[in-house]
Design a protein around this nucleic acid. Structure first.
Length: 256
DNA sequence: ATGACGCCATAGTGGCGA
C-alpha cells in the first residue's frame, strides 16, 4: 500500500499537476494540504475521474485539507483537531482507510516569530500532541502525515544558520516535534534514510529548487502497528520541477 | 532585504499569507 502527502498550494491552480502526479504515481491514499478553496469548489468530479474518492475540509482563501483513496471512500473520523472550539482554520481531517487511521494535517506556519501567529502554532502543536497520544493509546495502526512546517534537525535545512529564528526552525518548534515523536512515533523518511539530505519544499524565490536550497517539512509519523510494515519512503522531487508546480513536492511511503 | 506564487476584493492593482 502506497500513501502520499502533497501540499498543493491551491488545488484549483494545481489541478493539472495534481492529476498528472496521481496518474503517474498511483498512490492508494493521498493526503492534500493548502487547498485554498471553499468546500464547494473542491474538484470532486475530476478527482473521481482520476479513480479516487475523497473527503475534504475546505476554507475560503486559506488552509484546507483532503484525503483521497482508490480503495473506497475514506471513512471520516473527524474534521477538526480537538482542544479549541474557537479555531476556525481547516487544518486537520482524519479518516479510516483500509483499516488504517489516517490523520491529514496542515500545521500553522507561525511566522512572524515571536508573535500571535507563532503562539497559535505552538498551541496547535500542543493540541496535535495531545490528540496523537490518544491515537497511540488506541493501539490502532495510525499515520499522521502532512505539512508540519517544522524542520526537525539541521540535516533537514539547506542552510541551518539562516533559519534559527524562523518559526519553522526555532528551538520551541523543534522541541515540540521531538516531544511528539518521542511518544512512540516513527519518522518514516528518517527511519529508512537516516543520513541523507532529503527535502520536500523549495521556495519559489531565488531559484531555490535549481540550487537545491530546500527544507524537509512534510512528514510521515507512524504508530508502532504501522512502523513494522514500513517498506519504502521517498520524495517525488521531479514533480517540483514541473510547470506550474507547488512549492512542495509529494512525499510517499509504502507499507508491506 | 529582496522575492514568487495563489488567493481575494472590487479589479484592471494591492494586500495577505507564508
Amino acid at each position: 500500500m502506497k500513501i502520499a502527502t502533497y501540499n498543493v498550494n491551491g488545488i484549483s491552480a494545481r489541478l493539472p499537476v495534481l492529476l498528472r502526479w496521481l496518474a503517474e504515481t498511483k498512490p492508494d491514499i493521498a493526503c492534500l494540504q493548502e487547498l485554498k478553496a471553499p468546500q464547494e469548489k473542491f474538484p470532486e468530479q475530476e478527482i473521481r475521474n482520476a479513480g479516487y474518492e475523497a473527503i475534504w475540509h475546505g476554507q475560503k482563501s486559506w488552509n484546507g485539507v483532503a484525503i483521497l483513496s482508490r480503495a473506497g471512500k475514506p471513512e471520516e473520523v473527524r474534521r477538526t483537531l480537538p482542544g479549541d472550539d474557537e479555531d476556525t482554520h481547516s487544518r486537520y481531517i482524519e479518516a479510516t482507510v483500509d483499516g488504517v487511521v489516517v490523520g491529514c494535517l496542515y500545521l500553522p506556519n507561525g511566522n512572524p516569530a515571536p508573535g500571535p501567529k507563532f503562539d497559535y502554532k505552538l498551541r496547535w502543536f500542543e493540541r496535535l500532541t495531545h490528540h496523537a497520544a490518544s491515537l497511540l493509546h488506541s493501539g490502532k495502526p495510525v499515520i499522521l502525515t502532512g505539512d508540519y512546517n517544522v524542520m526537525p534537525t539541521e540535516l533537514d535545512v539547506y542552510k541551518p544558520e539562516n533559519w534559527v529564528d524562523d518559526a519553522l526552525f526555532r528551538p520551541e518548534v523543534r522541541s515540540a516535534f521531538h516531544t511528539l515523536v518521542a511518544q512512540g512515533w516513527t519518522d518514516a523518511i528518517r527511519k529508512l534514510h537516516p543520513d541523507e539530505k532529503i527535502y520536500t519544499f523549495w521556495d519559489y524565490f531565488r531559484n531555490a529548487y535549481g540550487r537545491n536550497a530546500g527544507l524537509r517539512i512534510d512528514h510521515f509519523l507512524l504508530s508502532p502497528a504501522v512502523a513494522g510494515r514500513l517498506h519504502a519512503a521517498g520524495v517525488d522531487k521531479d514533480v517540483r520541477g514541473w510547470e506550474k508546480s507547488s512549492d512542495h513536492a509529494p512525499v510517499w511511503i509504502e507499507l508491506k
